[in-house]
Amino acid sequence: MGVIEVSGLVKRYGDLEAVHGIDLVVEPGEVFGFLGPNGAGKTTTISILCTLLRPTAGEARVAGIDVAHDPAAVRSRIGLVFQDPSLDDQLTARENLELHGRIYGVPGPLRRQRVDELLQVVELADRANSLVKTFSGGMKRRLEIARGVLHHPQVLFLDEPTLGLDPQTRKHIWDYLQELRRSEGVTLFMTTHYMDEAEFCDRIAIIDRGTIVALGTPAELKSRIGGDVITLTVADVPTAAKEIAERFGIAPLAANGTLRIEVPDGASFLPRLVRELPMRIDSVALSRPSLDDVFLKLTGHAIRSEGASDKDMLRNMGRMWRGGRR
């Protein structure tokens, strides 16, 4: 039995259908990645699984419990790291963890032991008594992750745990997550729109506009692209696309002013392409398929950033407002 089981999940906000009928099963101990662009419905799905939102239709069970019927029972069995930090920055790292332990009813002596242990794991023991407002983004994230597993949840949900962090810090966060998965045996369900991160997951669901367009291991997904990927930069993308289609019988994909061509054997095709294409080529690259390529192939568009939504505006406003009040 899966630790998360979702079937036909739909969430509508007024006219907008943010989640479009999602089905998935996550096995215990798995690292499951939910990959999609801004506005794909990742946060909405997580919010439903964590009982913060009610599904419009469909069913979701977490740890065997229906999220719509017994939210309290689900809540005590999960941990959640939100997309935006939800620490209390007027409290110290230790106080934040202590408070969490109290809220989840972890008894005193065990709580203190657990707090110390987790501060060690995320390497914040030396800053345990500093106010969280003095922490860097990466430190806050680590603390939130420690907090998320403090009460030994069966599933830890992480909504974009590495968003806005530099590559080195992102790598670190991943190390902690792998370590926690190993030592705690917790299932990780995480969202991201960094393609490279999805590769750390056991399985990935690619979501676009509220629908899962592909689900499998990173290797399986990549094998959907036949062979190699050639990325071509040219001045006149449409003409080049037409030429390639006519000469080689391949349909290239256009994205961000470049053309991507999938070929079984890139190394031998590349010289032919350069020789036979009757136009100037600005640059050309040959690569193994990445999940970016998979995404582009499945959805017909690159993972993109959309304009700021109302929610983003409120988010920024709140940050400013709170920043000013400090």
Binding site: C50, T51, L52, A72, A73, R75, S76, I78, L80, F82, D84, S86, L87, D88, H100, I103, Y104, G105, R147, K311, L314, R315, G318, R319, W321, R322
Partner: peptide, 16 residues
């Protein structure tokens, strides 16, 4: 603000 983006969400997902 707190319930959309702040600490209150920690309380809202808690089993209380």
């Amino acid at each position: 603000w707190d319930r959309e983006f702040g600490f209150m969400r920690e309380l809202l997902v808690a089993p209380i």
